[in-house]
Nucleic acid binder design. Sequence first.
DNA 1: GCCAACGTTGGC
DNA 2: GCCAACGTTGGC
Length: 150
Amino acid sequence: MRYWLLKSEPHVYSIDTLKSQKVGTWDGVRNYAARNNLKAMQKGDVAFFYHSSTKEVGIAGLVTVVKEAYPDPLQFDTSSQYYDPKSAATHPRWCAVDVRFKKKFKNIIPLSVLKSDRRLSSMPLMQRGSRLSVQEVTKKDFIYILKTYA
DNA sequence: GCCAACGTTGGC
DNA sequence: GCCAACGTTGGC
Protein backbone atom coordinates (compact mmCIF):
# COMPACT_ATOMS: atom_id res chain seq x y z
CA MET A 1 0.00 0.00 0.00
CA ARG A 2 1.35 3.37 -1.03
CA TYR A 3 0.46 6.93 -0.23
CA TRP A 4 -0.02 9.88 -2.55
CA LEU A 5 -0.88 13.51 -2.86
CA LEU A 6 -3.22 14.73 -5.57
CA LYS A 7 -3.33 18.42 -6.43
CA SER A 8 -6.40 20.12 -7.74
CA GLU A 9 -7.55 23.69 -8.09
CA PRO A 10 -10.76 23.71 -6.06
CA HIS A 11 -12.52 26.12 -8.41
CA VAL A 12 -12.09 23.40 -11.05
CA TYR A 13 -12.52 20.32 -8.86
CA SER A 14 -12.77 20.42 -5.10
CA ILE A 15 -13.09 17.93 -2.29
CA ASP A 16 -16.70 19.03 -1.86
CA THR A 17 -17.42 18.07 -5.45
CA LEU A 18 -15.88 14.66 -4.91
CA LYS A 19 -17.81 14.30 -1.66
CA SER A 20 -21.10 14.80 -3.46
CA GLN A 21 -20.03 12.44 -6.25
CA LYS A 22 -18.66 9.85 -3.81
CA VAL A 23 -16.51 8.44 -6.65
CA GLY A 24 -14.77 10.71 -9.12
CA THR A 25 -12.33 10.48 -12.01
CA TRP A 26 -8.89 11.97 -11.65
CA ASP A 27 -8.33 13.06 -15.23
CA GLY A 28 -6.64 15.84 -17.14
CA VAL A 29 -3.12 15.04 -15.95
CA ARG A 30 -0.81 16.14 -18.77
CA ASN A 31 2.63 15.75 -17.32
CA TYR A 32 4.66 12.61 -17.80
CA ALA A 33 6.07 12.36 -14.31
CA ALA A 34 2.64 12.85 -12.78
CA ARG A 35 1.18 10.33 -15.19
CA ASN A 36 3.77 7.77 -14.20
CA ASN A 37 2.71 8.19 -10.61
CA LEU A 38 -0.94 7.73 -11.60
CA LYS A 39 0.04 4.47 -13.27
CA ALA A 40 1.76 3.30 -10.13
CA MET A 41 -1.33 3.80 -7.99
CA GLN A 42 -3.08 0.67 -6.83
CA LYS A 43 -6.55 -0.05 -5.64
CA GLY A 44 -6.71 0.68 -1.93
CA ASP A 45 -3.94 3.28 -1.94
CA VAL A 46 -4.75 6.41 0.00
CA ALA A 47 -4.08 9.97 -1.12
CA PHE A 48 -4.26 13.48 0.24
CA PHE A 49 -6.60 15.74 -1.68
CA TYR A 50 -4.64 18.97 -2.00
CA HIS A 51 -6.14 22.32 -2.94
CA SER A 52 -3.83 24.54 -4.98
CA SER A 53 -4.11 28.04 -6.46
CA THR A 54 -6.68 29.17 -3.97
CA LYS A 55 -7.03 31.26 -0.82
CA GLU A 56 -6.56 28.30 1.48
CA VAL A 57 -3.74 26.30 -0.04
CA GLY A 58 -3.26 22.94 1.63
CA ILE A 59 -4.51 19.43 2.28
CA ALA A 60 -8.28 19.26 2.34
CA GLY A 61 -8.93 15.58 2.98
CA LEU A 62 -8.45 11.98 2.02
CA VAL A 63 -9.40 9.79 -0.92
CA THR A 64 -8.89 6.14 -1.78
CA VAL A 65 -8.07 4.69 -5.17
CA VAL A 66 -10.91 2.51 -6.44
CA LYS A 67 -9.92 2.07 -10.07
CA GLU A 68 -6.37 1.79 -11.33
CA ALA A 69 -5.00 3.65 -14.33
CA TYR A 70 -7.01 3.51 -17.56
CA PRO A 71 -6.91 5.74 -20.65
CA ASP A 72 -8.07 9.26 -19.88
CA PRO A 73 -11.11 9.73 -22.14
CA LEU A 74 -10.52 13.48 -22.38
CA GLN A 75 -7.41 12.99 -24.51
CA PHE A 76 -9.68 11.86 -27.37
CA ASP A 77 -12.38 14.47 -26.81
CA THR A 78 -11.85 17.25 -29.33
CA SER A 79 -14.09 19.56 -27.33
CA SER A 80 -12.03 19.17 -24.18
CA GLN A 81 -9.20 21.45 -23.19
CA TYR A 82 -7.36 18.21 -22.38
CA TYR A 83 -7.68 16.92 -25.93
CA ASP A 84 -4.33 15.67 -27.23
CA PRO A 85 -4.11 15.30 -31.00
CA LYS A 86 -0.86 13.39 -30.62
CA SER A 87 -2.42 10.63 -28.58
CA ALA A 88 -3.55 7.62 -30.60
CA ALA A 89 -6.44 5.45 -29.44
CA THR A 90 -4.25 2.40 -29.91
CA HIS A 91 -1.49 3.90 -27.80
CA PRO A 92 -3.11 6.26 -25.32
CA ARG A 93 -0.64 8.70 -23.85
CA TRP A 94 -2.55 9.82 -20.77
CA CYS A 95 -4.36 7.97 -18.06
CA ALA A 96 -6.83 8.58 -15.29
CA VAL A 97 -7.73 6.84 -12.05
CA ASP A 98 -10.97 6.76 -10.10
CA VAL A 99 -11.00 7.80 -6.47
CA ARG A 100 -13.56 7.57 -3.71
CA PHE A 101 -14.20 10.30 -1.19
CA LYS A 102 -12.93 9.22 2.22
CA LYS A 103 -12.74 12.23 4.47
CA LYS A 104 -12.82 15.99 4.53
CA PHE A 105 -10.76 17.52 7.30
CA LYS A 106 -12.53 19.96 9.60
CA ASN A 107 -9.91 22.47 8.64
CA ILE A 108 -7.60 22.49 5.67
CA ILE A 109 -4.04 21.72 6.70
CA PRO A 110 -2.34 24.83 5.35
CA LEU A 111 0.77 24.50 3.24
CA SER A 112 2.36 27.19 5.42
CA VAL A 113 1.99 24.97 8.49
CA LEU A 114 3.47 21.97 6.71
CA LYS A 115 6.34 24.13 5.48
CA SER A 116 7.15 25.27 8.97
CA ASP A 117 7.51 21.68 10.15
CA ARG A 118 11.15 20.68 9.77
CA ARG A 119 10.23 16.99 9.86
CA LEU A 120 8.55 17.40 6.51
CA SER A 121 11.21 19.42 4.74
CA SER A 122 12.18 16.57 2.44
CA MET A 123 8.72 16.22 0.93
CA PRO A 124 8.59 17.14 -2.77
CA LEU A 125 5.69 19.43 -1.95
CA MET A 126 8.00 21.63 0.09
CA GLN A 127 10.58 22.10 -2.63
CA ARG A 128 10.54 25.40 -4.41
CA GLY A 129 9.13 25.11 -7.88
CA SER A 130 7.74 21.65 -7.28
CA ARG A 131 4.80 21.52 -9.64
CA LEU A 132 4.13 17.83 -9.80
CA SER A 133 0.38 17.35 -9.46
CA VAL A 134 0.59 13.68 -8.47
CA GLN A 135 3.24 12.98 -5.85
CA GLU A 136 4.10 10.02 -3.73
CA VAL A 137 4.18 10.56 0.02
CA THR A 138 6.16 8.26 2.29
CA LYS A 139 4.15 6.22 4.77
CA LYS A 140 6.01 7.93 7.57
CA ASP A 141 5.19 11.44 6.38
CA PHE A 142 1.61 10.51 5.57
CA ILE A 143 0.87 9.08 8.99
CA TYR A 144 2.75 11.86 10.71
CA ILE A 145 0.74 14.53 8.95
CA LEU A 146 -2.52 12.76 9.75
CA LYS A 147 -1.65 12.34 13.40
CA THR A 148 -0.23 15.79 13.89
CA TYR A 149 -2.43 18.06 11.84
CA ALA A 150 -5.65 16.37 10.78
C1' DG B 1 20.81 16.14 -29.74
C1' DC B 2 21.50 20.96 -28.28
C1' DC B 3 19.45 24.89 -26.54
C1' DA B 4 16.75 29.18 -26.75
C1' DA B 5 12.14 30.56 -26.58
C1' DC B 6 7.97 29.93 -24.83
C1' DG B 7 4.16 28.23 -21.89
C1' DT B 8 2.41 26.62 -17.53
C1' DT B 9 2.27 25.93 -12.64
C1' DG B 10 1.45 27.68 -8.41
C1' DG B 11 2.91 30.18 -4.13
C1' DC B 12 2.92 34.61 -2.58
C1' DG C 1 -0.18 40.28 -10.92
C1' DC C 2 4.61 38.82 -10.17
C1' DC C 3 8.02 35.67 -10.86
C1' DA C 4 10.77 31.37 -10.14
C1' DA C 5 10.96 26.83 -11.68
C1' DC C 6 10.72 23.73 -14.99
C1' DG C 7 8.54 21.14 -18.93
C1' DT C 8 7.85 21.34 -23.91
C1' DT C 9 8.63 22.82 -28.55
C1' DG C 10 11.07 23.44 -32.58
C1' DG C 11 14.95 25.32 -35.39
C1' DC C 12 19.35 24.07 -36.47
